[in-house]
């Protein structure tokens, strides 16, 4: 099945936007990524990914409100579009299918086997 290609980083950013819900904007996404994955990403990388995702139609955005610490500048708030949501879903199903078709014991064991 053909769908728009989604890079690994893009996928994580898209998921983070979904996690954050109403308050997804640059700084918040960066912080959330840091907390969830431990990856120290630069703001510019996040912005670039967001920009790309919006171009691909998986995110939509609108300008939010301004705060004093931003020097009176507004935030751009992102939300996942239907296309984005469907893509995420498809990616997840694909992964699940792959997981399901792995024969037991074909992955080397590590830690506690559940």
């Amino acid at each position: 099945m053909k769908r728009t290609y989604l890079g690994e980083f893009e996928e994580i950013v898209l998921l983070t936007v979904a996690v954050l819900g109403q308050g997804a904007y640059g700084v918040a996404i960066t912080d959330e990524l840091d907390r969830q994955t431990g990856r120290a990403v630069s703001i510019s990388a996040v912005h670039a990914a967001l920009h790309r995702l919006e171009e691909k139609g998986m995110l939509s955005s609108h300008m939010g409100d301004a705060t004093a610490e931003r020097g009176g500048r507004r935030k751009r708030l992102f939300s996942v579009t239907a296309l984005g949501s469907r893509t995420l879903q498809e990616v997840r199903e694909q992964r699940n299918r792959l997981w399901d078709s792995i024969a037991p014991q074909s992955l080397p064991a590590f830690g506690i086997v559940m």
């Binding site: 904007y25 640059g26 700084v27 912005h47 300008m63 705060t67 931003r70 500048r73 751009r76």
Partner: peptide
């Protein structure tokens, strides 16, 4: 892009 980028950077800066 300037407004959001600059805003984000300022927020981070503070």
């Amino acid at each position: 892009l300037l407004e959001e980028v600059q805003g984000d950077l300022h927020e981070r800066f503070q």
